[in-house]
């Protein structure tokens, strides 16, 4: 259940910035970007995004006019991204989920996404069945043959350059994949992303201790110590309780 996102902003660099931030989010898929409301209308119709990252001032129609033209049932969740403070009231009247003032930092965007997820939860609960199947085993390709590792044997996953290291007991396997692609293979009830470069099997977690600045230290049953970064804490709480 990816959050399919369309970026609508007339400034290319501003779109690039949002896109780069979103690329760090495993459950967000940027399905397109455009620079004006007319193109956005067509893109929304064609791509049916869950979320619009929407600028206010654009050539031609504004972000508000765009929303006005969309029938209520076709309206994605909206996060405004703008340099203008003065439209905030109007934005929330139009049921925007959040309102980001440019320039905003990564953390502020994450907060907005957390709100979006919360807003979309009831609507998406019914989609669970439609979600792509999670893999029971992971193919490990080497020259001339493919080995399989059972997903339930994976204790934790760490990113290492262009590869991921799958730690399974004493064994380590390398797969060439990105963190977010790999995370999509895994059942979120079994595995938990705790860091930009770390996923753990929640069963393997022995204990969690606070570190400074909101991070947490996670100790696995085999003694491995990992860091749970602040930005993933909110999601981890739903699995690991109040940590």
């Amino acid at each position: 259940m990816k959050l399919r996102t369309l970026i609508v902003d007339d400034m290319p660099l501003s779109r690039a910035r949002v896109r780069r931030y979103l690329s760090d989010e495993p459950d967000v898929e940027v399905v397109g970007e455009c620079g004006d409301a007319d193109t956005a209308m067509t893109d929304i119709d064609r791509l049916k995004p869950d979320l619009l990252m929407l600028d206010v001032q654009m050539p031609g129609a504004s972000g508000f006019e765009l929303l006005g033209r969309l029938p209520a049932d076709k309206r994605p969740a909206v996060v405004f991204i703008t340099a203008f403070e003065e439209f905030a009231v109007q934005a929330f009247a139009a049921e925007a989920v959040d309102y980001l003032l440019k320039p905003f930092d990564h953390e502020r965007l994450r907060q907005a996404l957390a709100k979006v997820r919360a807003r979309l939860q009831p609507r998406r609960a019914g989609d669970v069945a439609a979600r792509g199947p999670h893999l029971d085993r992971i193919p490990i390709k080497s020259v001339g043959r493919t080995d399989y590792v059972s997903t339930s044997a994976i204790d934790w996953v760490e990113s290492a350059g262009n590869y991921l290291s799958l730690h399974c007991g004493k064994d380590v396997h390398l797969v060439r994949e990105t963190m977010s692609q790999f995370e999509a293979h895994l059942d979120p009830k079994v595995f938990l992303r705790i860091h930009r470069s770390t996923i753990v099997r929640t069963d393997a977690v022995q204990s969690v201790e606070p570190l400074f600045n909101g991070d947490r230290s996670v100790t696995l049953r085999d003694g491995t110590r990992l860091t749970l970064s602040r930005s993933y804490r909110e999601r981890a709480r739903t699995v690991l309780g109040d940590i």
Partner: peptide
């Protein structure tokens, strides 16, 4: 603000 936003990217 738009310029600062662009610079940060």
């Amino acid at each position: 603000y738009n310029t600062l936003n662009a610079i940060s990217e």
